[in-house]
């Protein structure tokens, strides 16, 4: 078991003929992901790394039974790509694209929510269930199957923690990068709920950062609904207020969204917050006993 992606995943790549789309399609196939289709408007009839390309998502779904989509199209086309995937009935949509305007995401978020599809991202590395399916841009080899579920707003910082867990002999059930934007399709709370319900997950690592209050809401949720041990990590203790730290969502504004508030909220919910990736691994090991 795992969450969201596994051997049943039949993946569609939107933007498969682009540089990023094509490169990562090869990487995902190499990892063992079942990539069944690609979409590029006007690209029908081509194949990319052996994967058939279609003009529309609707056609790709009809012909291949794709149930998950990953989006590598540029920001100005990405909201449309998400709408197309939703309208074609894709259950899980993973959007890697960075720099989608926030007001576009307001509409996208609520449209996806009404549809019953799930969106991961945007501005995220995707997600991986080790040994089963990689739907993203993360280096697959650092992961190993095991009992730890990861959820994170970051990319390389997640790899860092996964690497430390793997080196400590702690494998992962699924690692989900939810994205660094102010408005994202899937929140910490959503993923925590899935890990809580997943029998293969025995401990959870949550990697947050400055900006917004999603970590605080996750802390409340953990207190009320999560019985499995959770270990936290929060980046940006030294970040100055009012400055965007790379990710569009990583900004302390109006005194809100500081690392100190998030750490305090997590501690109050009984979640220990590590100071390094190695310490995350130590705390997970202790929690698993």
């Amino acid at each position: 078991m795992s969450i969201l992606v596994d051997r049943q995943t039949r993946l569609l790549v939107q933007g498969i003929t682009g540089r990023e789309g094509s490169f990562h399609t090869a990487q995902m196939i190499e990892y063992g992901t079942n990539v069944v289709a690609g979409v590029t408007p006007g690209g029908a009839g081509k194949t990319v790394h052996g994967v058939p390309v279609f003009n529309t998502v609707e056609e790709a779904v009809r012909e291949t039974g794709a149930n998950t989509s990953i989006i590598y199209v540029p920001a100005r086309f990405a909201p449309d790509a998400i709408y197309e995937a939703v309208d074609a009935g894709i259950a899980l949509i993973v959007c890697i694209t960075e720099n989608i305007p926030t007001l576009d995401m307001v509409k996208v978020y609520h449209y996806v929510k009404q549809s019953g599809s799930r969106l991961i991202g945007p501005n995220c590395p995707g997600l991986i269930t080790p040994g089963q399916a990689k739907v993203g841009i993360m280096p697959g080899y650092i992961h190993t199957p095991g009992p730890v579920g990861l959820v994170s707003r970051s990319g390389t910082l997640t790899y860092e923690v996964v690497h430390a867990l793997t080196q400590a002999g702690l494998g992962q059930s699924t690692a989900v990068g939810i994205g660094g934007d102010p408005i994202i399709g899937t929140s910490f709370v959503d993923v925590l709920g899935m890990f809580e319900a997943d029998p293969a997950t025995r401990a959870i690592v949550m990697i947050g950062e400055i900006g917004g209050t999603d970590e605080e809401r996750a802390a409340e949720y953990i207190k009320a609904h999560v019985s499995k041990p959770v270990v936290g990590f929060i980046a940006g203790r030294t970040a100055p207020p009012g400055k965007r730290m790379g990710h569009a969502g990583a900004i302390i504004s109006g005194g809100q969204g500081t690392a100190a508030e998030k750490i305090a909220a997590l501690n109050a919910a009984g979640v220990p917050v590590a100071e390094s990736a190695q310490q995350v691994a130590e705390l997970v090991r202790e929690a698993l006993g």
């Binding site: 994170s152 990319g155 390389t156 910082l157």
Partner: peptide, 12 residues
């Protein structure tokens, strides 16, 4: 490389 890792580096 990476925003989250960069913040974590500053913190360290």
């Amino acid at each position: 490389n990476g925003a989250g890792l960069s913040m974590a580096t500053m913190d360290a």
